[in-house]
Design a protein around this nucleic acid. Structure first.
Lengths: 209, 209, 209, 209
DNA sequence: GATGAATGAGACTTCATTCAT
DNA sequence: TATGAATGAAGTCTCATTCAT
């Protein structure tokens, strides 16, 4: 018994990636068996090995692709440095939330399954994560210099706002009561607030002359 | 071979808990074997079953104990409702950070290994987590009513600030450059900021007449 | 992708045989996979099945061809029965060593991989091996009758001298210090000696009258 | 279901060794599965891993033990150097045949399954084999010096006589027609003859005056 | 209180082989 | 002539767990 007529390598690989993303996110890397994964796309377990040499390679491929796309997408959208830091931070928050809107599972994987990577693979992904983090660090550092953001450890702040946003996929459900745009705005404001209060230059006097 | 003289059930159970907390956090529930766990405390794997009926039971025990202690501790420290919401939020942030200061691994487990629980166990832990979350929701709701916090979805905000704080153990290292008190203060400010800028009712005129 | 222009079935089959001989000898029948074999000659694994119906068929083909050629070659060189047995044994030894000189791997296979044959195939090869062995048995029997070889079990002796010679490919390296002709002569003498001392007809008396 | 009452680790390990020796010899290392091996001694396959960490480790243990015992046994029996080389060679042949008389399978394994060893393990066994071979090389070298053995490459000769003797287990059947003592004597003579004819100093005249 | 022996299930992975193209 | 896709069986090995001692 050979293949189903019309089977197609490219399509199959895509299907594996999609299923793996979903199922790794749902059950965890260790808890998901290759058989179960293959079953999901009506394939014998052995067929997976035509596309990925090991289970680990699937996970790595997923995380690597995710980070590469993330960095490329941000690169395309990154606002110029001359813009005020707070605006850049807002842009970043919007970007981060939007980019992951339909990449919920990938985002989830990208921090939940780091520990399932082999040391070598971990190091590679860590580098990319660090690069992404650095984008935020830079923005916040600039804001501190400008005096527009709270003058404190930029890296800790960067990590905190990323963690804040990454909390979203843990509870978000598509059929929930809040609309994506609302959530977007909410998170943007929280990020902004976490990085420091927006102190208005001009404040109406409470005690007029 | 009989038992080692002086071996002590209570001590052993405590040792199992401690080792399990550390090792589950490091390797993940699925990735840690009972043999490896037993080895860590110089025990045969079979001996573990004298203290816990299954591996799952260990995880559940850890998470349940953690949540119970967390709720009890907060109960003991919770400020009265009459205090302004922002102050209560600050108190909560301080409590959360401090309480987990030496419970890093437990905190980590309590959100990373939720999915490793059986449905029944998951439901129980979820209830406790929800109860804890509700404490923050209440504070923020009160703050919104008071007008002192940003008038937005209280539950989303609560989740966000918790996620923000839970990001800490992912990067914190004891031998790092920032002292615990500094981190504490920093996170407190970020939480406060995320929940809404502290808009002073009374602002001294910057440009007095 | 159509076939490579100029690809040629006969050539391919020859290439498979050559590669299989080498690789079976190096790794063993069980340890060599069809994929690995196909790779060696830049072929997809499936293509092998155009030339041989099963892996077992390749091994059998190799061993059968080897034995057929061996018997045919000896048939062409076999000295007439009227020649003294010791000379015939010498001729045989020379033939055996020379014939296998560039058939090292085949010789190796022909006794190392007998057990990898299916019972039917084994029986066929055994018959041929037996026929070859019989050639030596006959020579030695004749020698015993003649009184020129040690009067002992001819079959055991035959097997022993064959084993003695078959030990060669286990250690022989082309770049070794001893030349093929030297080795040839050495083995010839050892075979001859193993079959019985050459008792000279005429011996100078040690106690002359 | 736990263990059968009275099961005993030492006995089990011994049983594994015995079964592995027999079955590796019969089917080959690669062709024998752990399941099949375990079955032979009424054990679940998993139980094997309490005694040997890998399949490879079983093979290595077998070959190492065999070689160690072989060398130790010869050490205990080795005739002193002052004895004439031909006598020492005879003693060696007798020893080799006798020692392996009830170690047929181990002997078979020790040259048939060398290639199934990992490089590291192979190197260790090779060293031992070389040490054993050297014993014969020494005897033959001495014989050449003495003038009692054929003046030729001692190492090649050593290998040849060992190969000659190792051919025995390939065909020997306990229920065959020739008795062990007969075989012993026969092989001794063949070895002796292969190493060079025993040219008697004194020969009675065949043609007396 | 603790362990040594064992197991059945199931993990990842490789294999020889098939068949439409 | 050759291959790309696929499969079912089987491989080695690990796992949580049991139970007599």
């Amino acid at each position: 018994m050979a293949r189903t007529t019309g089977s197609d390598g490219t399509r199959t690989k895509t299907a594996i990636r999609a299923a793996a993303t979903r199922l790794f996110a749902r059950y965890g890397y260790e808890a998901l068996s290759m058989r179960r994964l293959a079953e999901e796309i009506d394939l014998g377990a052995a067929a997976l090995y035509r596309y990925f040499p090991t289970k680990q390679a699937i996970l790595f491929d997923l995380l690597k692709t995710h980070m590469d796309q993330l960095l490329a997408a941000w690169d395309a959208k990154r606002p110029p440095d001359r813009i005020p830091a707070r605006e850049r931070l807002n842009a970043f928050a919007e970007f981060h939330i939007r980019h992951h809107w339909d990449r919920n599972d990938s985002l989830f994987l990208s921090y939940m399954e780091l520990r399932s990577l082999t040391p070598d693979n971990f190091a590679q992904i860590e580098d990319l994560r660090r690069a992404y983090e650095n984008e935020v660090v830079t923005i916040i550092s600039d804001g501190i210099e400008e005096g527009s953001l709270r003058p404190q450890n930029a890296r800790v702040t960067a990590r905190a706002v990323i963690a804040l946003m990454n909390g979203l996929p843990a509870w978000y459900r598509e059929d929930g009561p809040i609309s994506p745009p609302e959530i977007e705005k909410l998170y943007q404001q929280m990020v902004s607030g976490a990085a420091g209060p927006d102190i208005p230059k001009e404040i109406p006097c409470s005690t007029p002359a």
